[in-house]
Simulated assay, not measured.
Amino acid sequence: SIKLVLKMLDRQMAVIDKNIDGMLKEHFAEKLALFKDFKGVGPCMQAALMGALPELGQLTHAQIGKLVGVAPLNADSGRHKGKRITWGGRATVRTTLYMAALSAIRYNPVIKTFYERLLANGKLKKVALVACMHKMLTIMNAIVKSGIPWNPEHQNVSKNA
């Protein structure tokens, strides 16, 4: 009987996934097309962005980072200078962004280079990963704001021009 329940749950999850995919394509096709070639931004990240972060593309990079909870905030008090930490924000987007960043540091050349540079400069792995999350969010915000699709060669093109 447990196997039957598991099969039923698998079927229901497949139907829900199909419904989510259909809704995303129906309502957010233009925005999602902008992320088509952005390695690390898959269906789960797209669903989280469209469903839980409607402000994407309308805020500055500092505002969107703070809203999601990946912006470094100071922990200072008086003369005490504490470490910068990230906290608060929209946990749903942040946790999905964490998984997307793990994928991006392996497969996205821009994010991978950024991550490796941070590690080479002595940053802790978790700190570098959160910085990659922030960079990815900033890039996605800029993509939606400008309406220009992701181009990993953008920095190289602008330097050569």
Rank of each mutant, 00 (worst) to 15 (best):
F28Y: 13
Q155P: 02
N19K: 05
G89D: 02
K31F: 01
K81V: 14
E55M: 12
P152L: 05
R84D: 00
P72V: 12
N74K: 14
V144P: 03
A48P: 07
A100P: 08
R106E: 03
H134S: 05
L9N: 14
G42T: 00
T60F: 03
T95G: 09
C132F: 08
G57L: 01
M23D: 07
K25I: 05
E30Q: 06
I16C: 08
L49N: 05
L137G: 05
G88C: 13
L24N: 09
A101M: 02
F38N: 09
L24Q: 07
D17F: 09
G89Q: 01
K123M: 04
K66N: 04
E30W: 01
P54L: 10
S77H: 09
T113H: 10
R79T: 04
A128Q: 02
T96L: 01
D76K: 11
G51L: 13
K25P: 10
S146H: 00
D21T: 10
N160S: 09
D76R: 07
T96H: 04
M99S: 10
T95W: 05
L137Q: 01
L24V: 12
T138P: 03
N19R: 11
C44T: 15
L124I: 08
M23H: 11
D37H: 08
V70R: 01
C44H: 14
E55Q: 08
P54A: 08
F28D: 07
N121C: 08
E26L: 09
D76E: 03
A101V: 09
L24Y: 06
T95K: 07
V93E: 00
R106P: 03
Y98F: 11
G22A: 06
G42Q: 05
I111A: 06
V130I: 14
K31T: 13
Q155Y: 09
L129H: 10
P109W: 04
I20S: 05
G88Y: 15
L49F: 10
S103V: 01
A131P: 00
I2G: 06
K7P: 02
N160W: 15
G69I: 05
I139L: 10
M99I: 04
R94F: 03
T60L: 11
E116R: 15
F114W: 06
L102I: 07
L59F: 07
Y98I: 09
A91L: 07
S1K: 15
M23W: 15
G89V: 04
W87S: 06
M99G: 13
R117M: 10
L102N: 15
G51W: 15
M136H: 07
V144A: 12
A71W: 04
G40Y: 00
D10W: 06
G147I: 01
G42A: 10
I85A: 12
M133I: 11
Q63K: 15
